[in-house]
C-alpha cells in the first residue's frame, strides 16, 4: 500500500513539473492543476509519514521531480508569436 502511495505521489509531482514547464497553458490553469497535483502528493505522503514527515517529503520530492524534469526533458519548445 505504501509503495503504491509513494508511486502516486511521485507521479503527481512529476506531472506537476511537466505542467509548470508547459507553455501552452494559461497561468490560471497551471496554478489550478499544480495545486491539485501538489495536494494529492501531500495527502499521499502524509498518510504514510505523518503530517510533518509528509510535508517534508513532498517538498523534497518536488525538488527532485523538478530537477529530473529539467535534466531529462529540458526547457519546453518556445512557441513563436
Amino acid at each position: 500500500m505504501n509503495e503504491l502511495l509513494i508511486t502516486i505521489a511521485m507521479v503527481s509531482l512529476l506531472l506537476m513539473m511537466l505542467n509548470i514547464r508547459k507553455n501552452t497553458l494559461t497561468i490560471v490553469t497551471k496554478t489550478f492543476l499544480s495545486t491539485l497535483l501538489f495536494g494529492l502528493a501531500l495527502i499521499c505522503f502524509m498518510s504514510i509519514y505523518g503530517i510533518l514527515g509528509g510535508a517534508i517529503c513532498t517538498v523534497v520530492g518536488a525538488m527532485l521531480a523538478g530537477l529530473l524534469t529539467a535534466v531529462i526533458a529540458g526547457k519546453a519548445p518556445q512557441l513563436l508569436g
Binding site: N2, I6, Y49, G53, C57, V60, M63, L64
Partner: peptide, 13 residues
C-alpha cells in the same frame, strides 16, 4: 525519519 524511499531522495539530492 522514514523509510528507504526518503533516504533515496536524500541520496539523490
Amino acid at each position: 525519519f522514514a523509510g528507504v524511499f526518503v533516504k533515496l531522495l536524500w541520496v539523490l539530492l
